[in-house]
Amino acid sequence: MLIICFLTLYPIWYVLVNSFNEGQDAMRGGIYWIPRVLSLDSYKAVFGNDGIMTAMGITVAKTVIGTALHVFFTAMVAYAFSRKELIGRKIYMLLGTITLFFGGGLIPFYLLIRDLHLLDSFFVYILPAMFNFFDLIIFLAFFREIPAGLEEAARIDGANDFSIFVRVIIPISMPVIATIALFHGVYQWNDYFTGMIYINKMELQPIQTYLYRVIAQSSSNQMMAQMPGGIGKSVTSQSIKLATMVVTTLPIVFVYPFLQKYFVKGLMIGSIKG
């Protein structure tokens, strides 16, 4: 187990250590455990670059908004699926299950996005990802375990279906909500493909797409030109990449421990009784 942990964590430590080392010195190699020449210039370059900070803002916005809408909309559909009186429920489940194994492909989906006028729009990050059938199955397994008496009591008090969902179902579903929020939040944060295919405007590209372009080009000439004065001599394109990787990874790593207890409980939904 210790060997596995080391093999998993050391690459992260290596990136972190080299990102805090002076860029020109890091080119010599031989940095494995601690920085040889400590320097924050790479991070100054990252946070001083308008393009990176704009991309970070887009990433944060699409992660927060996209995750909130995805959880609410998917939970609402799952709650409807959990009702036995839903007409055509078996047909809907069959159609949804088919989508888990078969898709239309990239070109038809691109044409659909184009016809919906979502190209070069912030909503291309939000609307197509508002619903996921796999997440619906997880919600459905949880909702089926909720005692029917809770809904009946709320209905006696005059609550309609939407009021029951918002005031009764959502508050007692925090474990599964946290699980799905973590799943989708990580997806939204790490998604670079959507920005690469459907977004041409640089000001709408997320940080992962920005980082992808930096790595793919193996050059940071535009970035180096936008650096604050006095930094250019001590950083390299490699040090910029490492610092950007750390900046884009740490936020989601810090969020995970706060949701871990809900995450573990949510994964056990439907696997045990009692």
Rank of each mutant, 00 (worst) to 15 (best):
K62Y: 00
T54P: 03
F183T: 01
T63E: 00
L250R: 06
Y212W: 15
L259E: 02
R144S: 04
W13I: 15
F131M: 05
I107N: 11
I197L: 15
L211C: 03
V214Y: 06
Y110C: 12
G88T: 02
G149C: 06
V264W: 03
E22H: 05
G105M: 13
R89P: 01
V60T: 04
S121P: 07
T8W: 13
A159R: 01
G23W: 05
L9G: 11
S163P: 00
A154P: 09
A26N: 14
A154E: 11
E85R: 14
I91H: 02
I177M: 04
C5G: 14
T8N: 13
V15L: 12
H117Y: 12
I215W: 12
S121A: 10
K261G: 00
L69S: 10
I4F: 15
A141S: 15
N190Q: 15
L259S: 07
A129D: 04
I113L: 07
E145G: 08
A45F: 07
Y110T: 12
R36V: 05
G266Y: 03
Y43D: 11
I107Q: 12
T54K: 15
L16F: 15
P251L: 06
S239Q: 06
K201I: 05
F123D: 09
D25R: 14
I113A: 03
G229I: 08
I164W: 08
F183D: 06
A178C: 10
I31L: 06
V15H: 10
S82N: 11
I113M: 11
R213K: 15
Y92M: 15
V176Y: 08
G158Q: 01
F131L: 13
G30W: 12
L140G: 05
W189F: 12
T59H: 10
V235Y: 02
R155P: 02
A61F: 09
E145C: 06
S234R: 08
I146H: 05
I172Y: 03
K261L: 00
I252Y: 04
V124Y: 05
F254H: 01
T99L: 07
I272N: 00
A129Q: 03
D157S: 09
I180Y: 02
S82R: 08
A141G: 09
G274W: 00
L211Q: 05
E145R: 10
V168A: 11
T63P: 02
V253L: 15
H70L: 04
L40K: 11
Q238I: 11
R28K: 13
T99N: 01
I207Y: 08
